[in-house]
Design a binder for these strands. Structure first.
Lengths: 131, 131
DNA sequence: CCAATACTTGCACGATGGCACAAATGACCA
DNA sequence: TGGTCATTTGTGCCATCGTGCAAGTATTGG
């Protein structure tokens, strides 16, 4: 069915946009921890990861927990230590889906599904029309 | 040159990780504004966009400016009004690059460039070795 | 020039976030 | 069972953020 309303693309975009994920990635220290861990080819203990930045170990622990909660990392206890690993696959896939969802919303790319060129937009973004 | 150290993938990842972008996307209200605008097939004025959420117009104005600063949106004055549009291409591309960079860091996928399996990692993530 | 419309900026306030330090917990070993 | 190592959790401090309201600025039309 070829409707003029906002297509599935917009809904898929809304689904893909996870504020918690972005919030987790929105801190320089956390990004640094993530790159540290990603440049490593194995899961690392909290203490090891903490050694790559200046903040307190307790802070690193909290940052890692937050990244794990956002499903960027995965933590697993191994004896006395807890090893964190990057969830490469899920993270990469989530971002890929988001990238695709944004591209799919681009009128320039999905011209066939929306040619309104603003003509169908009578009430602005709020009214729930195509626009 | 086949080195055992952290390959270009990690550096590319660090380059792709932009805290400002994530910070801009890390707020539910801003995400809502973004999806509102994305479900529209044309640039929208601030007032129009503001109609799709409950916060004050001034707040929306600030949010849109922040998204524009993060290069998620682009604002252009047209007469009395300012129209904001999603920068679909750049945003999609940035996320795509990031997705790829993460996938490239995955030891499981780039097995050829890093088979250390932890054996080369003597000092943890901090020492700047492969790990 | 003045008024109206559309938006931005200044300001104050409460909420949240990042941080260090200290104390508590969990796991292992003698 | 104590003691030690590794990590988490409690607490307080300061900075930043999101918000509403009020005032300011930009653009257009009379």
């Amino acid at each position: 069915m070829t409707t003029r309303r906002s297509p599935a693309a917009a809904k898929e975009l809304a689904r893909s946009l996870d504020a918690e994920l972005f919030k987790a990635l929105g801190d320089p220290t956390r990004l640094h921890l993530l790159t540290c861990l990603a440049s490593c080819c194995r899961p690392c203990a909290v203490g090891e990861i903490a050694a790559c930045c200046d903040v307190d170990l307790s802070v690193v622990s909290r940052h890692l927990a937050q990244l794990a909660k956002a499903e960027v990392l995965e933590g697993k206890r191994e004896g006395k230590s807890v090893r964190y690993a990057v969830l490469y696959g899920p993270l990469s896939d989530a971002l890929r889906r988001l990238s695709d969802a944004i591209a799919d919303c681009d009128p320039a790319r999905r011209g066939r599904s929306c040619r309104c060129a603003g003509l169908c937009c009578k009430g602005g973004a709020a009214k729930g029309g195509c626009c």
